[in-house]
Design a protein around this nucleic acid. Sequence first.
RNA 1: GCCCCCGUAGCUCAGGGGAUAGAGCACACGCCUCCGGAGCGUGGGGCGCAGGUUCGAAUCCUGCCGGGGGCACCA
Length: 550
Amino acid sequence: MVTDALAGLVEVALKAAVADGALSSESFPGPHFERPKRAEHGDWATSIALVVARGGANPRAVAAALVERLPPSDLVERVEVAGPGFLNFHLSSKWLHDVVQRAADPASGFGRSSEGSGRHVNLEYVSANPTGPMNVVSGRHAAVGDALAGLLEATGHKVTREFLINDAGRQLDLFAQSVAARYLQHFRVMAELPEDGYQGDYLIEVAEQIANEIGDGLVQSPSAEREKTLGDLALQRMLDSMKASLERFGSRFDVWFSERKMHDSGAVSAVIERLRDGGFIEERDKALWFRSSQFGDDKDRVVVRSNGATTYLTADIAYLIDKAGRGYDHLIYLWGADHHGTVPRMMAATQALGLIKEQVEIRLIQNVSLLREGVTVKASKRAGEVVALDELVDEVGSDAARYTFLTRSMDAPLEFDIELAKQEGPDNPVYYVQYAHARICSILKKAAEQGFLTGTSPLDPVGHPSEEQLMRKLSSYEETVLLAAQARAPQRLTRYLEELASSFSAYYRDCRVISEERALSQARLTLCLATKRVIADGLGLLLVSAPESM
RNA sequence: GCCCCCGUAGCUCAGGGGAUAGAGCACACGCCUCCGGAGCGUGGGGCGCAGGUUCGAAUCCUGCCGGGGGCACCA
């Protein structure tokens, strides 16, 4: 990006200033550039003079000294000292035009960077229990995970999208027992759901489908056999339905990882030996404890219960070992906020296993509530108001659902306004952005019909303030993608796309694209093309479609 | 009681230690001979409180207040 070039210029000036005594020789941090909020402060600004002046020098004097020593560059039109000592860089129109040309060129890699240097990231998300349909909370997880994956790939990472199937443990036992009870009920045999069993009506349907398929042969079987068989059949059906819901929503995973296979292979019990070898296991009250408090956890944690069963943590550690052995450079977990209490023990395990703490990243996604007709419905399972992802997609569509999930920081609870997301009008941000794209497509089509060139053309004829503003907005796409990826913040991109669409609207209002002035029309069409490509690219990273017409 | 997240405009929320804190909705007032009015413009209004670090704090630290979530040999 252009900031690298600008930083190079400033470093030359710093060295020159030290060499001729204008600055005392110290080691300076690399100049940091940021986008000023106000247009008159230029395209990029750095506070390096304020940092350098920390020793007591006058920051404005330092800034002036640096300006004098900046080497010439065709990127830079002029540099001003402003405020307490900022260096404001006003870049040349050549630079701006070059950026827009790249944005308009599909082969230029605009918006892509190599910041990730090909590092391989494992991103695990959703991982919803296969004991019920996908709900809207899982939908948020899917949207956020997919968007992060796209952003990481755009910044030069290789990403493996992974889904952990919780197909083992007590919840699955309860699930199997619940299905078995529904199966018996289907054949008019008295049976009760277990305590804490799965009450949902969907299990009645699943049991009925299975009963229709395999008949009543299991009614007479021993309960253990019946539960095992029915549990497995029902699990498979639930998994298929989850995959179908996710696919309909647009999510695709590279790895579906079975927890059960990890138990069967002995990987879970192997955790105990691994931790024992490290001296991190202690027996107390007939249970085995992992001394996680050595690594900052509040207290030690049980890994094998006194009844011999392993705990959830044990499986989590086995899973961590498995991932670590697959050669990724970085692991990201996206968990629900209700798991926050388990983060310290996982990070303790990371350290006990000798892994690098910084390579394991656990992010929590806050809850979703739905706002319908002015009433807020909490989407928690506890409240019993689970809204299925399929229903949401039916009602608002996957584009609007996905986009809405991405308008907020994952740290903040999300209030999903169903009425707003459903609107096919400008109040709905996703339609506003898609509309801008469709409108450009319409203009480009019309231009082609009238014999204009469809490729890029020189931008020299442009000059209207709205054109300038649109070009500057386009130029900030690259850093937006990079920052969104680094901060794990897809909402930066949705926000940016809304701003871009807004800038385009102003441009469209002020500047007639297709006119008698041929060269100007071609330049404006290039600007349209660049905007179209950036909108489509940004939406694409978020798995939201960019329709040609609406 | 302890831990995590949040507290920014009437509402829902953005804000990478920087300059005069933003968007959408809502509200008020405007704009259609025009390439898609499914659009655009103008306006009012805000960083929970108190300290601290810093040249500079909505942002970092501490305490308090308020909201949400979590604190099992459950998952």
